[in-house]
Nucleic acid binder design. Sequence first.
DNA 1: CCAATCAGTGAACACCCGTACACTGAAAGT
DNA 2: ACTTTCAGTGTACGGGTGTTCACTGATTGG
Lengths: 207, 207
Amino acid sequence: MSTAGTRQEQKERTREAILSSALTLAQEHGFAQISLRQVARHAGVVPTAFYRHFQSMDELGLALVEQSFDTLRQMIRDAQRDPDVFANIIDAAAEVLVDTVKQYKAHFAFVARERFGGSDAVRGAIRHELDLFVSELAVVLARLPNIERWRSEDVQMVSRLFVRNMVYNAEEVVEMPDNRPDLEERIKEGARRQMRLIVLGFEKWES
Amino acid sequence: MSTAGTRQEQKERTREAILSSALTLAQEHGFAQISLRQVARHAGVVPTAFYRHFQSMDELGLALVEQSFDTLRQMIRDAQRDPDVFANIIDAAAEVLVDTVKQYKAHFAFVARERFGGSDAVRGAIRHELDLFVSELAVVLARLPNIERWRSEDVQMVSRLFVRNMVYNAEEVVEMPDNRPDLEERIKEGARRQMRLIVLGFEKWES
DNA sequence: CCAATCAGTGAACACCCGTACACTGAAAGT
DNA sequence: ACTTTCAGTGTACGGGTGTTCACTGATTGG
């Protein structure tokens, strides 16, 4: 039997060193351009030890996709608990988005970059997770006043529109230099205005 | 003196072989992952000959950015000449977008990928060109009925919203498998609906 | 016709890559 | 106490990389 043997603990620690090393290095030049040896070196481990944890860089990439979308889902869960969200969905959403992306920059940068630049496997996984996310958001949107009676395809469409803009805004935050609260506020303000414009269209939408 | 000496002609032909080889190879795995030697090999030229045309892969990348945005600008110019555009801006825009992207897939794929995945130089160049493009579109939008009186920041904001969606729709066309007119129609329909929703918001927009 | 130019050649270099293999030594199981 | 397990080691390999250098030979211009 085993409770928390030092054995597995150490292995887990190394695994996480590899994951976070990969994430750090990927921030500089993109995950697709970093090598197994670079990751191992940064994690303080010999290249061959890498294989005790991942069969290939692709497998590492998939693990990072999973990790990244976990923080994305956490963001949504937190946002829904926030009482401000009911008072003013748009302002709260802009706030939460910018703050969370700033906090977990590496994860969002990873998704933004590898969404198009990564290997087939990584790209496919990200695409799939984003599609899931669109559907989840559609469920939330379907409960909003003006949208209740829409055809489900239209709800999906508007959900895609929101997710696209979320992705795009996240990209801007990721590219933003540190310590520039003015830029941060501009991005928030832009996000708010875009969402407001889209919501204005809701009332008059038909077919 | 020289008019069109066979000398320069041949050089130009090689240069274009290198450019188109790079574009072709980049479509498979992304420009950032292909090597100078691969490009030279595909162009039927020895690696060292590459340097007669470009100082580095980065310089090649910048040339491809230029080439790609030339076709993008051509798309806009053609669209403005099309009489249908005045009859129904939205349907025409969706049509032109999907058709042009399909025709120049390699260029749009290049921009979509390297917009985030490329080297600093390439990424910066694409970002700059896209910003220019947003401003150009804003000038066109500012002449539309409901928008005439808007503050210029709001016009820019809505222009960004359109360009973002254009980029995102282009990405979908690029990822679309060939010979799937059903998918193509779905993307067009989605683009039309999103644009219509946004335009609906125009009338009620204030501040 | 002859000298200069210069796009493209081919060999050589030092380097980094992924992976195979036999290994070590401490923790885990009995 | 002993054996087994297995995370991490160290060496070695074949192969792809960017860049250097001296070169060749057809086109060019006088």
